[in-house]
Design a protein around this nucleic acid. Structure first.
Lengths: 170, 170
DNA sequence: ATAACTGCAAAACATTTGCATACAG
DNA sequence: CTGTATGCAAATGTTTTGCAGTTAT
């Protein structure tokens, strides 16, 4: 039922800079969620939300914590983790596990659905988009009587970028 | 270049019981790998390999360790982890991260390539197979000049099995 | 014989939890 | 005011590492 990637191109239609209206929409969604759950709207929670939406990379909780500390926010790691879980629950961010044990987070609201290409050497993560995944999803849902909420397709390999010098295995 | 899922059916062609010949082939592959790397062939390593190929489920390192202890093998957790990493390197097993932080392992040699359907409620993992993933992979590899080695497509949702009583979110 | 492997325990790493204090509603 | 959130540190859970003793080659 969710909107999938309908375009012919492989490249995802990711919004890079949010307009003031979009920013407000995001804030509203979080505020409404917190109110609906009887949770408080704190400075720290807003700061985490904004930081995630400013970062156009796949970031982990610790990087996010460090980033916020460097910006002068006296926020603890525990609060970062706590807030990330709230943002997951209201679907403002998504969590990825790219093979390593550390989870990566990414804003999801207003951004197109997409999948990932991960370089095994330099660990760079790229994004792509293919409408066929949507039909695979529907077909599998039907065959298995499964109500599918989301998917993750990760392609692992070796990128050809000259900057990629990494070599992992023998 | 790797053989993908070419069949029309969604259900993967997983071999359930290995023949003596297949078992020998697997052992040989491990033995050759160990020799090529100057590593030793120990009782513990063989035991882990056999246990993984006996288990037709997605198993984590700790479950595997427990299983082996219950069978009377005095093997340590460290050795289980060490051996799993060796088996990954010689491509006899694959590792999955199904959302939770715990990695799951599965035999991969002689078994068909397939993807996974994960129930968010009861955590049951099912397998499916779709040839279109192969073409998506090829198309993306081409568009991004990426040499793709493997992929993981996970579909998350709610299964309709009567035994599935779990309810996670509000 | 000897270099690598094992088991154990400790370390490392990511994430969660408990508790006293701070602050939103 | 009141109860929830925060920061800190300690706890948890998973995987890795160091070391002394064991074993494959």
């Amino acid at each position: 039922m969710k909107f999938g990637c309908k375009r012919k191109t492989l490249f995802p239609n990711k919004v890079i800079n949010l307009s003031a209206t979009q920013r407000k929409e995001i804030h509203k969604r979080f505020k409404d969620f917190l109110k609906s759950q009887g949770l408080r709207e704190t400075r720290e929670r807003k700061v985490v939300l904004d930081a995630i939406y400013e970062t156009h990379e796949h970031i982990d909780a610790d990087e996010l914590h460090l980033h916020l500390r460097q910006q002068g926010h006296a926020i603890s790691r525990a609060t970062v983790y706590n807030t990330l879980n709230l943002l997951l629950r209201c679907e403002l961010v998504v969590r990825h596990q790219f093979g390593n044990s550390q989870a990566k987070y990414e804003p999801s609201f207003l951004f197109g659905q997409h999948d990932h290409l991960i370089c095994l050497d330099c660990k760079k993560v790229m994004e792509f988009c293919d409408p066929r995944i949507q039909s695979i999803q529907e077909m599998v849902a039907d065959a298995y009587s499964f109500e599918i909420k989301r998917h993750a397709l990760n392609l692992y390999g070796h990128c050809q970028r000259p900057e990629c010098a990494g070599r992992a295995s023998t």
